[in-house]
Nucleic acid binder design. Structure first.
Lengths: 254, 254
DNA sequence: GATCTCGTTGCACTACATGCAATGGCCATT
DNA sequence: AATGGCCATTGCATGTAGTGCAACGAGATC
C-alpha cells in the first residue's frame, strides 16, 4: 500500500539471506542506488540493519530485541506458561504451545523435559504445518472456506511415509481432528517422535492456540503417550478458562 | 532520512510494548488515522505486524523468522560454534559468544553445560554492558574517542556491590582489560556468578567478538574458574585464526 | 432504534521520495 | 607513484506518491 515502506521492508528478507552491499540491494529492489541508500539508512537508524566494516549490510540487533519483546508480551504465553510447566513436571516430556498467524503456525513457548527453560530456538522456523499436531488443531478450526484455500496453497513434504501427502488427505485429517477435539502426530514429522495435542479456546469457543506433548518412541510408545491425552486436554481446558476470564487485562495501560 | 519509512518503523517498538489499535498508533505517531492505517497495512503485508480479531495490532511472525535467519547467517557464529562446544565439553560450564553492534552487546551463541542446545533465549535482551566480561572485551577495543562517548552515554545499574558504578570506573576497567587481553566478571552481574572471557580478533587485530565461560560460585570458586583462562584464550585464538582465514567465504553467492 | 466510536475510502494538494549526474574516497592495476 | 575504475555519497529538479480531510459504514452501547 505504501510504496516507500514496501520497498524498505523488502530489504529485510533480502538481507536475511546474507550480507549485501548497496549496489546489490538497489538491483534486487529495482531502484536507483541513492534510493536504496536512503532506505538502508532509515532501517539502520532504527537498528533493523547493521552496516559492517566492509560497507555491506546485514540484519541488525534490534530485530532480536523486537522479536524477544513480542513473545514475552503475548497474553497467551503468560497465561499458559505455568500450566505448561505443571504438565511437564507431571509427565516429564516436552510441551509445546503454538498459535496460528496468517497461514503460518509458530511455537510461542516450549518446556523441555526437566529443564524449564524458555527455548525460543524454534520460534520463527515454520512449524511443519501439514503434520504437527498443534498445526492440525489450529487449522481444523478455521472457517471451511479459509481452510480449503489454505490447504490447497500448502506444500506437502513427505518427511516420513506417514506425512499427509496432499490437500485432500490433510483436509480429511483436519475433519477428524475437528470432530474429536484433539490431535496426534504419530511419526509424521520425524519417524521416532510422537505427539498428542489439544486445543485452547477463547471465550467464543474459537481455537486461539494449541498445545502438545512430544516424546520419542524410545521413551514411551505411541499407546503410552496417548494415555496422557486426558491430562493434556485438562491442561488445555484450564488454560482456556483462564484465558477467557481476562483476555485483555491491560487495555487501560496507555 | 525517509519520513514514511521512519514512521512505519516507529510503529514496531510501539507495538512491542503490547497490542494497540489504529487510533492509538496514529496518536503516538502524530499522524492522521488514515496514514497510520496505510503504514500498518504495509507492515502487515510483510508479516511484521499481525492484526488480531479485535482489530488491534501486534508484532507479527515474520519478525521471528527474520531474527532467526539473521543469527544463523552470521559467519562468526558458524565458525565459532564447534569451538565453543569443544570448550564446553572440556570444562563443562556455560560458554557464551557475543558481538558488539551500535552501542549494544548481544549474545549470538551459547552452549550450556552438557546440553549443546543453541539457546537464543537471551538474544535481544541487552547484555549487562557495564559488567559482563564479553562486553568489556568488546568495548575495550573501541577507538579511544568512541569508547569515551559510549561510556558517558551508558547507565550504570548496581546489580551488585561489585558492578561498575560510573563511567570513570568503567573506563578504567576497560583500560585494564585492553592491557591484559582478557576479562572477568566476578559477581558483578549476579552475586554468585563468575565469568572469564577472551577476545576474538579479525585479520587486522581488531576485536570482532568475545567469548566467555560462566559458572556459579557453588560449582567452582573464582580462583578455580580463573585456571581455565589459558584454555579460554586458546579457544578464542583458534576461532580468531579460523575467522581471519576466510572472513567472507560466500562473497560470490549472488 | 438512535447515537457514538472506530475503521475505512476517495480525493485534492503538496511534501517528499526518486533518479540523475557529479564528487570524492578507496583499492587495484600499470 | 600515478592512473583508472569502482562504489558510496550528495544536491538538485521533477513529479509521483504519501498525506490529511471529510464523508461513509459497520458495530457496539444505551
Amino acid at each position: 500500500m505504501s510504496q516507500t515502506v514496501d520497498r524498505a521492508l523488502s530489504i529485510l528478507p533480502l538481507l536475511a539471506q546474507g550480507p549485501a552491499d548497496l549496489g546489490q540491494v538497489a538491483d534486487r529492489l529495482g531502484v536507483h542506488k541513492s534510493t536504496a541508500l536512503r532506505l538502508l539508512r532509515t532501517l539502520h537508524e532504527h537498528g533493523l540493519v547493521y552496516r559492517q566494516q566492509d560497507n555491506r549490510y546485514r540484519l541488525g540487533a534490534r530485530l532480536f530485541a523486537l522479536a524477544q519483546e513480542a513473545v514475552e508480551n503475548l497474553d497467551m504465553r503468560d497465561i499458559a506458561h505455568s500450566h505448561l510447566v505443571a504438565l511437564n513436571s507431571q509427565c516429564g516430556h516436552t510441551v509445546h504451545l503454538a498459535v496460528h498467524e496468517d497461514g503460518e503456525v509458530l511455537y510461542i513457548d516450549k518446556v523441555e523435559s526437566r529443564y524449564p527453560v524458555r527455548m525460543y530456538s524454534r520460534i520463527g522456523k515454520p512449524v511443519a504445518i501439514t503434520v504437527a499436531a498443534v498445526a492440525k488443531l489450529l487449522l481444523a478450526d478455521l472457517p471451511e472456506a479459509e481452510r480449503r484455500v489454505l490447504a490447497e496453497r500448502l506444500d506437502y513434504p513427505m518427511y516420513t511415509p506417514r506425512s499427509s501427502p496432499n490437500a485432500a488427505a490433510f483436509l480429511k485429517e483436519l475433519a477428524t481432528v475437528r470432530e474429536q477435539g484433539w490431535a496426534t502426530d504419530l511419526g509424521g514429522h520425524e519417524e521416532s517422535i510422537n505427539c498428542v495435542g489439544a486445543p485452547i479456546r477463547g471465550a467464543d469457543g474459537r481455537v486461539v492456540a494449541a498445545m502438545s506433548v512430544s516424546a520419542p518412541n524410545v521413551v514411551v510408545t505411541a499407546e503410552e503417550l496417548l494415555t496422557l491425552l486426558p491430562l493434556v486436554r485438562r491442561t488445555a481446558d484450564a488454560i482456556s478458562r483462564e484465558y477467557s476470564g481476562n483476555t485483555h487485562p491491560s487495555k487501560d495501560a496507555s
